[in-house]
Design a protein around this nucleic acid. Structure first.
Lengths: 194, 194
DNA sequence: CACAAATGTAAATGTTTGTTTACTTAGGCC
DNA sequence: GGCCTAAGTAAACAAACATTTACATTTGTG
């Protein structure tokens, strides 16, 4: 049996910064901002606590950086999306496991709050952009009602993600892509008919 | 101008207990478990911190009591509900402001976690019961797919509540009962066709 | 009215928190 | 190859935290 020694990482600021981002994101998503301690994060990364303040000035700064990552990931997912793709991509991205930058992760990250008002504004802007892209995919004039309906689609995605990852409620938590695609198709077609 | 002195409440264990429950629920819903301090709660109630431990043994105990309240409230809301009522009641209960025991409050409370596994089990049981009642309202045999579809309805309610109360995302955050009833009807009919 | 139990408070306790400081170690460049 | 800067660490810091203890006040009752 190997000694499970992590292959001793060489000193590299960029790599360490990235590593901290990665493990912090997982913690923030799973436990939330307040319940996550900077020592938790540092231990996960196998580095000293002080590095968090060195690279991100504060716990808050690290959180904002994680939020920025989630924003990029989720924007990439919904960019130039078409109405036909919404259902399939939602089912796929939601059902697919929690790998780095998955839609589930990004959505959960967007639900986390640090209490800072600036962060709340960021979250609102990101989600507003997402719902506008969904509304645009519907192809209809971007009126208030279309936007509202797009946000209900978004709400469904968020709710499903919550029930699956945070609450682990059966059977939806164990549903695979194939199980989800039917209900999701019905919801999207009902909310954003072509 | 009056001195704004709160009408000095007489000593009464039951009343104080209830008062603590009330203000704690609001805090837990708004700020989450970890971000809420027992001093916040005690100050809101205008009583000494030690009373929390006296009446609920711990912060955790107080949280569980709040969760129990939310469970009762939400069960009352979905008990014996019929398919026709789901849409109207969802739209009404979601749109209606955040008064004591509102559906929005109960749902938000169910999303809060203290980290304790026992609490996670409670939340899962409550939501499972809710989704079973929704499935029962659909009138169809209680197979897995009906339950899954009922949980997607629940997910939509949760998502909308989150977007409204926690993220305050416009325009869904400002939508009134009349604005919501259309999209909600479409979603419920699509997921649980009669 | 007195007194005992119930209700409430103030203050102290020991952790845990995020952050800072002073120090050590590794790595690239002339 | 020595050296200077970048990268990382250990230890200490004060503030905030949940909880406990010891004490005060109110309230119902004989």
């Amino acid at each position: 049996m190997s000694t499970e020694q992590v292959p001793r990482r060489r000193r590299n600021a960029a790599d360490t910064r990235q590593l901290l981002l990665h493990v912090a994101r997982l913690r923030f998503i799973r436990d939330g901002y307040a319940a996550t301690t900077v020592r938790d994060i540092a231990d996960d990364a196998g580095v000293n606590v002080a590095l968090i303040n060195r690279y991100f000035t504060s716990k808050e700064g690290l959180f904002e950086a994680c939020l920025g990552m989630a924003a990029s990931d989720i924007n990439r997912d919904v960019d130039n999306i078409t109405l036909d793709q919404i259902t399939a991509r939602m089912a796929n991205k939601i059902a697919t496991g929690t790998d780095e930058g998955s839609l589930q992760d990004s959505l959960m990250m967007l639900l986390r709050t640090s209490g800072e008002e600036r962060v709340n504004l960021m979250r609102r802007e990101i989600l507003h952009a997402v719902s506008e892209k969904l509304a645009a995919a519907a192809g209809r004039p971007a009126d208030e009602e279309t936007l509202l309906r797009a946000q209900v689609v978004l709400a469904t995605a968020i709710g499903i993600t919550l029930l699956r990852t945070s609450l682990r409620l059966a059977p939806i938590a164990n549903a695979d892509e194939q199980d989800l695609i039917g209900p999701l198709t019905d919801v999207v077609n009902a909310l954003l008919p072509r």
